[in-house]
Simulated scan of single mutants.
Amino acid sequence: MINNKKILLCCSAGMSTSLLVTKMRKAAEEKGVEVEINAVALELFEENVNKYDIFLLGPQVKFKKTVFQKVDDQHGKIVEVINMMDYGTMNGAKVLDFALSLIK
Rank of each mutant, 00 (worst) to 15 (best):
K51D: 00
F55G: 00
F45T: 03
F55I: 02
E46H: 11
V49T: 11
E47S: 13
D53I: 10
G58A: 10
V67C: 04
L44E: 12
E46P: 01
K64N: 10
L44A: 12
E36P: 01
E47C: 13
A41I: 08
G58P: 06
E36W: 08
V40S: 09
F45G: 04
T66F: 07
A39P: 03
I54A: 06
F55D: 00
V40L: 08
E47Q: 13
V49N: 07
V61N: 10
L42T: 05
V61M: 09
L42H: 04
A39S: 15
F45E: 01
Q60A: 06
A41E: 09
L44P: 04
N48F: 01
T66E: 12
F55T: 00
V40M: 07
K62G: 09
L44H: 14
K51T: 03
F45C: 04
K64A: 14
D53W: 05
D53N: 06
E43N: 11
N48I: 07
E47G: 09
K64T: 15
L56W: 00
K51Q: 01
I54G: 08
L44T: 07
F68A: 11
L56G: 01
E47R: 14
V61C: 05
K51Y: 03
V67M: 12
K64G: 09
E46L: 05
E36K: 08
E46I: 08
V61W: 02
V67D: 10
V49P: 03
L56I: 05
V61T: 13
N38Y: 04
L42D: 09
I54K: 11
F68C: 11
A39I: 00
Q60Y: 06
Q60K: 10
E47F: 14
V49R: 05
A39E: 02
E47P: 11
D53G: 06
K62D: 12
N48Q: 02
N48G: 07
G58C: 08
E43P: 03
G58W: 00
E46G: 04
T66P: 03
A39Y: 00
L44S: 14
N48H: 09
E47K: 12
N48R: 09
F63I: 09
L44W: 14
P59M: 08
I37W: 00
K65G: 12
N50K: 14
V61P: 00
N38I: 04
A41L: 08
Q60I: 04
E43K: 07
D53F: 08
V49A: 14
F68R: 15
Q60P: 03
I37F: 04
E43A: 07
L44R: 10
P59G: 07
Q69H: 06
L44D: 13
P59E: 15
V67N: 11
T66M: 13
A41S: 08
F63D: 06
F63E: 06
N50I: 05
N50S: 13
F55A: 04
V67E: 14
P59N: 10
E36C: 03
E36L: 15
I37K: 01
T66L: 10
Y52T: 04
K51C: 05
K62A: 12
V49F: 09
N50D: 15
V61E: 04
L56H: 06
Y52K: 01
N50G: 11
K65H: 09
I37L: 11
Q69A: 14
F68Y: 13
V67P: 08
